[in-house]
Write a protein that binds this DNA or RNA. Structure first.
Lengths: 154, 154
DNA sequence: TAATAACCAACTAAAATAGTCAAGTAATTA
DNA sequence: TAATTACTTGACTATTTTAGTTGGTTATTA
């Protein structure tokens, strides 16, 4: 599990897609304009997202991309792993490269941690992210409304 | 919060330090040998770790590095943030670069996620990581022992 | 068939990662 | 105090990844 700007671009783009597709395909030019990510870089990212069944494509005029599952079924971990598809070889995989017990030990500790981070991000769906964000926006709004109410009632 | 091989090197090195320092300083050459990380790269990493008060150094013969706090007080997030010390500018910080409401929206969603990841890693101390790993090792050991017991009792 | 938008591949510039080298400084021990 | 050990610092380099560019092709729809 790696967490870099590349993953952030991908998560941002999928969030944009989820927010702007109302059951209609969203084309990459629009995402490119809204999120200020170059079209060709988006093409590279969406090629991987499509191969990993996170989005599906429709060609031709009026075409674009659609989520290939519900918002709640697409996890942040899924998106990030899709675009970072490199073999992510841990330096000591089982037997090779393992000079002594000590190296294996910290290697295992790192793998444990990596698994925990992956599990954590696998439990955050983009639907949940959006829902939580809307909730926070509502909270802020109602706290402003309350303030106004108190002020005017005095 | 970025999660790259650089951070992994740093966490691995601090774990090695925690495991091999029995209240005595550990020198970087030894960590370099055990973890197969180049000495000068370790020097760069530990320079940042020291400036962030994660480790302290003792010079001269028999010198090296010590943890600057207890195992349970040093979090994984702390280590990773120390070595990734770059300004990590988010593209749209508050007002600037924000073309329209949509960009701000996905930006906020990303910031939310980033905060959640940071909180998560801030709650994992290297002491906890090591303890959990020892526990798992014991579990595996006792399950083997149990198997042997069952087998021999038949 | 003309416009649109996905798909593809090779290439390049810039940045980050990983490592090297060399000349220091500080602390300890003999 | 001289020699040793080990950390400190900075400049430099190679490699990899990131991000973007160019120039196409294929499929679809109006």
């Amino acid at each position: 599990m790696r967490l870099t700007t590349k993953g952030r671009y991908a998560v941002t783009a999928v969030l944009d897609l989820a927010l702007n597709s109302h059951d209609k395909p969203v084309n990459l030019s629009d995402i490119s304009d809204r999120q200020a990510i170059s079209l060709s870089y988006l093409e590279q990212l969406f090629s991987k997202l499509r191969k990993n069944n996170i989005v599906k494509s429709i060609r031709g005029p009026g075409g674009g991309y659609l989520l290939n599952a519900s918002r709640d079924e697409i996890s942040v971990a899924h998106i990030i792993n899709a675009v970072n598809e490199s073999i992510e070889l841990s330096r000591c995989d089982g037997r090779a490269n393992c000079h002594d017990g000590k190296q294996c030990l910290t290697h295992n500790l790192w793998v444990d941690l990596s698994t925990r981070i992956n599990d954590f991000l696998d439990n955050i769906s983009i639907g949940e992210l959006i829902k939580q964000n809307e909730q926070q926006a509502n909270d802020r709004l109602s706290s402003i409304t309350n303030t106004i109410t108190v002020t005017t009632s005095q």
